[in-house]
Design a protein around this nucleic acid. Structure first.
Lengths: 346, 346
DNA sequence: CTGAAAGCGCTTACAG
DNA sequence: CTGAAAGCGCTTACAG
């Protein structure tokens, strides 16, 4: 058992194996230029001794950094913690370290975190979470990432486009359409949307899907009452208050993520407005608690953990000439929070 | 604006400031041995140039590592993601990087992650989550941490004792007592406990609190039906099935964390057993969704985000001769899932 | 295939 | 207070 003590260095392994430092380094890195026999022996000795390379020395000497930087809006939001969990899984399998940073849904702060990670010389950068409508911010982020890639860094993003890098693309628009179609099929015509911050592309994309569904069925977008607020539970509460006040005729409320949906349900419950008898509610994401709300939440499932895995897996592949895109797919999960439109006057 | 390009090194700053490498290093590190005037100038130049030290070189050269390693059972469990959020807050304030690793509630794996972090030479190690009853595992962890501290590392843990390091100690026992007293006051006598894995100290401590409350009120611990299962939502489901089958007379179920409580509520709902009219339910932790369940969950609030902050703050202080302990406090949050014991035969 | 040597970008004794 | 130099533990041309 490797017990704490003076740290083992590569020279120790080399000495013990009876080879030079250079050979030992090559053998452990799996680089060519070493006979298979010698390489095997070195690895064997290394294992016996419990050697672990000093990552600082390795990286400083020009080896690839084995740490991945992950930027999320907020780690205690289930959407992001599930993504992070997927990233951690793959990282553990690959022997990588994961550094996590908060952007706090603030584009300037995200840029700051991004630069910090680059300055720290992580090998891989993953950015999760909606992009911003602001072209200037996106252009700056794009430039930073391009520079990072030029110097050998690898990048993948989740839920953003327009960054010119490999991307895991959630089915936001298609999911929105599925929700729209579902409510239309139930007879709903007066639909309100509790939408997140207007500047987020995720909000825009999901909303576009809903609108497209209405249009496809010959309905005017005017049937849709869109109320913007924060993309959080409390934002959902605020939006709902406004919807009940300004659009009391609504028979369904679409929350553009589950966090907002939780806020929507919370207000409806405290107002004793029965769901779905009087108002149907839909979310988006299918965070794990969605099934346990009361009523259980109809929502669009995105495979968050898998998305985290996909992103790191993408970043681990050799870079291609053009950015790759992986679509996540989606599933409409119909639960108890949606039902047929109430009879008029009922 | 610092734009990507050939990376700025400390020599560049030194040159530009007209001082030697050594002086520049000292000035930026805030070490003494530099005139305040020169130091200020160097810092000024550094800032203008947008210099960020290469952490690999710095650490390799013997400087303190500015990365903190955080081990959690599972990052997508709200308990841990809220703690992580607190850690990230303080880290951002202090300019530290945070590496997160999963232990997956497996003692062997936790040990592996711990050694990995030490091998990576992080400067600070934080371990969150219940300890294990297994003396061998705890002894090994203790030895690793002692060695790490001897070589200058700093450590703090959340929710474990017996590790001989600074600790943030959740009010598990007192919280358990508060729950017991609350149910007793409501007239409950037949109480079941959906307890997590037996080997976890958190489970033992919370359970001890509940038992103590019963004893304090002159009740025998035999009144308590304890069912062990996983410390998760699904564990809560399994435990509830068993409780309903083997202890159908129970009028209250105490889940030893909120995740289990969510599972408890889920089974009761699907069996159409009214809460709290027929059975009262209590959780522990007060994860953010607890207030939004239906019925909203009575639980003991632990300040998770603050606990994360406390742990890193503790670790940042100079080490003391004896391990420090910070108690978290707790608050019983009474919501809708608990009520008076049903009338017999009612 | 293998090894001696330079170099990565810092920090820290050691002199002055 | 300040600087020249050694050294941290690796990787990678460069020779052989």
């Amino acid at each position: 058992m490797p017990r704490p003590g003076p740290r083992l260095r590569l020279v120790d392994v080399a000495e013990r194996a009876g080879v030079s430092l250079a050979t030992a380094s090559r053998a452990l890195a799996g680089r060519e230029g070493v006979s298979e026999e010698v390489a095997r022996h070195v690895r064997q000795v290394s294992r016996e001794l419990g050697y672990v390379a000093n990552p600082y020395a390795r990286t400083l000497a020009g080896g690839a950094s084995s740490t991945v930087g992950l930027i999320v809006h907020q780690i205690d939001d289930p959407y992001f913690s599930e993504i992070a969990s997927g990233v951690l899984q793959v990282a553990a399998e690959e022997g990588l370290l994961v550094q996590i940073a908060h952007s706090g849904r603030d584009p300037e702060n995200e840029l700051r975190q991004l630069r910090h990670l680059i300055a720290q010389q992580v090998g891989i950068i993953l950015i999760a979470g909606s992009g911003y409508d602001d072209p200037r911010v996106e252009a700056e982020a794009r430039a930073e990432l391009a520079g990072f890639q030029r110097s050998g860094g690898r990048v993948a993003v989740i839920g953003r486009h327009a960054l010119g890098v490999d991307a895991v693309v959630p089915d936001n628009e298609a999911g929105g359409r599925a929700i729209g179609a579902h409510l239309l099929a139930l007879g709903h015509r007066r639909i309100a949307v509790a939408a997140g911050t207007p500047g987020l592309t995720t909000v825009a994309d999901r909303l576009a899907g809903v609108t497209a569904a209405l249009a496809a069925h010959g309905h005017s977008p005017d049937d849709l009452a869109v109320v913007h607020s924060d993309f959080t539970r409390d934002g959902g509460r605020v939006a709902t208050e406004r919807i009940l006040h300004h659009h009391p005729e609504s028979t369904a409320i679409i929350a553009l993520n589950d966090a907002m949906a939780i806020g929507v349900l919370s207000v409806l419950r405290s107002r004793r407005i029965p769901v779905p008898e009087r108002v149907s509610v839909v979310g988006f994401d299918d965070v794990s608690v969605a099934a346990d709300l009361a009523p259980s939440l109809t929502t669009v499932r995105l495979p968050m953990t898998e998305m985290g895995r996909m992103a790191l897996t993408l970043a681990l592949k050799p870079r291609s000439t053009r950015p790759r895109r992986r679509s996540t797919g989606h599933t409409l999960i119909v639960r108890d929070s949606t039902g047929p439109v109430p009879a008029p006057g009922g």
